[in-house]
């Protein structure tokens, strides 16, 4: 059992295991903090800056990303000060300039009383939360996609902007994207992610397409089991 610490969030006294983040502790206590880039499956990252909160430790008040900052005894957290709200409003307006359509973003904007962004709409779609890239690297373990460029030219990219050689077509990036930016479809035994095609495997028993061939090859490689083992779908196995 982890040691428990006590802190206050918006005046409410809370106990949480040491090592949890403010965001986790708040969520457990039913206190809502908007967030876009954090994901429990992934290592703390802190990029979108929506989850900023104001903390006081001793004398000084400062803003921290609640999805990274860990709880500590005697910590005072405020999730809704004017300073915090100003950062959030700026962040959401900036993100709306990249994507002013998606309901997830519109919802957060509404909560913050932001009707429209004052910045020119660039409609890039992707909000660069990085969940796809990090999932591919940290959870799937293949690092087929990454970022390219830096600053405002940063993009989620496949190597050389071409069909990614290491991709196993698992589709995790698609599921994890908060704004559904990465399209995926399956038709006639072919899965298409972005614009790249991946043939599917037919189940040896029931004859249904059930998984991309490259994914099964990958399973076979990491488990050291023969490929045939994976060529039957889970239902028939």
């Amino acid at each position: 059992m982890a040691e428990m610490v006590s802190l206050t969030i918006d005046g409410l006294k809370i106990h949480a295991p040491a090592g949890t983040t403010i965001l986790e502790a708040a969520t457990d206590a039913n206190i809502y903090i908007p967030h876009l880039c954090s994901n429990e499956e992934l290592a703390p990252y802190g990029a979108c800056r929506l989850c900023m909160v104001e903390i006081t430790q001793g004398e000084r008040a400062r803003l921290v990303a609640s999805c990274i900052f860990e709880v500590a005894d005697g910590l005072e957290v405020k999730t809704n000060t004017e300073r915090v709200l100003n950062v959030r409003r700026l962040v959401i307006e900036l993100l709306l300039a990249r994507n002013n359509k998606h309901p997830a973003l519109r919802k957060i904007a509404d909560e913050l009383g932001v009707k429209e962004t004052r910045f020119p709409i660039e409609q890039k779609g992707c909000i660069l939360c990085g969940q796809c890239v990090r999932t591919c690297r940290e959870v799937v373990g293949v690092s087929a996609i990454g970022f390219s460029g830096r600053g405002i030219t940063r993009k989620v990219a496949t190597p050389f902007m071409e069909s990614p050689p290491d991709c196993i077509a698992c589709g995790s990036c698609v599921y994890v994207c908060p704004v559904q930016f990465i399209p995926m479809k399956e038709e006639n035994g072919v899965r298409t992610i972005m614009k790249y095609d991946y043939p599917m495997q037919k189940c040896r028993k029931c004859g249904q397409y059930f998984a991309p061939k490259k994914q099964l090859e990958y399973f076979s490689k990491i488990t050291n089991l023969p490929l045939e083992h994976f060529e039957t779908c889970v239902d028939c196995r």
Binding site: V142, S143, A144, I145, G146, F147, S148, G149, R150, A157, T158, P159, F160, P164, P165, D166
Partner: peptide
Amino acid sequence: VPISQLYELGTF
């Protein structure tokens, strides 16, 4: 090293 990492470095 994954090629995506090298591409990332090359463009960063």
